[in-house]
Design a protein around this nucleic acid. Structure first.
Lengths: 217, 217
DNA sequence: ACCTGAACACCGTTCAAGT
DNA sequence: ACCTGAACACCGTTCAAGT
């Protein structure tokens, strides 16, 4: 496979664009798409710069015109992941009614995203991407997801459906719980011992809400 | 530390052992130690089979006598990590008094372990290690840590300090919260926006305990 | 301005061969 | 039984050179 198409390119004027020639303005886009396909179909370890270049039909050196290094490509993939996850959370919330079910829908869709796109999730949060602070637009995409969560908590508070307190602080607790569950599932850390995975999201969000402390009768 | 002890074991006759010759009975041990040094000092990406072999002073092919492949070495490193973490949690608990402070000590020491050994934590939970179910002793070491947590919750329940319910189920919620916080910190996902990191452990364990729901007055 | 080809220094893994 | 040397098929990255 990877039949390396015949490369019939003529540079300047070019009327009817053949759709298998990709890279004019947008080799960058093509490389990100290739990387997404690799990661989805073969996992994070298959995401190499050379493989992405092959998939996009260019030489191994070509990506360096568009990405400083492999880290930069990983950052772009991670950023797409955060945008997709934020979108999924928004959609889930829009189908829910009052603030509390919106909040739960958000948490559940976080976990669902991780289960549905485990390799992508691993790129978003895994250690291959060493220094996230170096990629501002990635940080911004991640912050947007967190903002959504904080706003959902604040809405619950306004409706008297959540404990009072700084919503950013409560947000860190909520984020930790859904993220931890997602990460444990994606790593395969939650085995047969721990119930059907579908129920864990429901349970953890409920447990988070009730708290572990004794119910004051 | 771990000064590569002179290995004063003589298989048969062998008078003055040169201390840079290591490998008689325990190249396996030497390779795990080398891997731990690499991961601690240079991060998970530096953990290569060849580098571990170099550090142990053997050829690049030698590790294959003791590990089926790189995954197997990673599994050994991860297993050591779980044992070290379990030890740290036990120590922290033994210094606490009643069940509830024991439980909080356990949670805090989980987060502290992650912050203190980020690269090791990443090997324990990261995606380089693809299939954890293939390594039973690793799974057992991980289960031991989880058992400790479940027992701590059950003790709280007996003392009336935690909500009733299946302690394994509450345990998944608690584990998710401390694990999620640890993972977010280690990934650098919790930036300047989110308070001093030292306080986050306290906050999340407290938030977990109180719950996010409204306090029934 | 954007891409290729060839090269360098690494990897993981295998395999014949040494002792 | 355990290790070495050499090899193969990969990587990330650089750099001169092409158009």
């Amino acid at each position: 496979m990877s039949a390396r198409q015949p490369s019939s390119r003529r540079p300047a004027r070019r009327p009817a664009g053949r759709r298998d020639r990709y890279h004019h303005g947008d080799l960058r886009r093509a490389l990100v798409d290739a990387a997404l396909r690799l990661v989805r179909r073969e996992g994070p370890r298959a995401l190499t710069l050379r493989a992405a270049a092959r998939l996009a039909g260019v030489s191994q050196a070509a990506p360096y015109r568009h990405f400083a290094d492999k880290q930069a490509l990983l950052a772009a993939v991670a950023e797409e992941g955060f945008r997709a996850m934020t979108g999924a959370m928004r959609r889930a919330m829009s189908e829910a009614g009052e603030p509390l079910s919106k909040f739960r829908a958000l948490g559940l869709s976080y976990v669902e995203f991780a289960r549905g796109h485990p390799a992508h999730f691993q790129v978003m949060f895994g250690p291959e991407l060493a220094d996230r602070t170096a990629y501002p637009s990635l940080a911004e995409a991640a912050a947007e997801a967190f903002n959504l969560l904080v706003a959902a908590i604040a809405d619950c508070q306004k409706a008297g459906l959540a404990r009072e307190g700084n919503p950013e602080e409560l947000g860190v607790t909520a984020w930790s719980a859904v993220h931890g569950l997602s990460a444990l599932i994606v790593n395969g850390q939650l085995g047969a011992r721990h119930a059907p995975l579908d129920e864990l999201g429901e349970r953890v969000t409920r447990g988070l809400f009730l708290g572990l402390g004794p119910r004051p009768a």
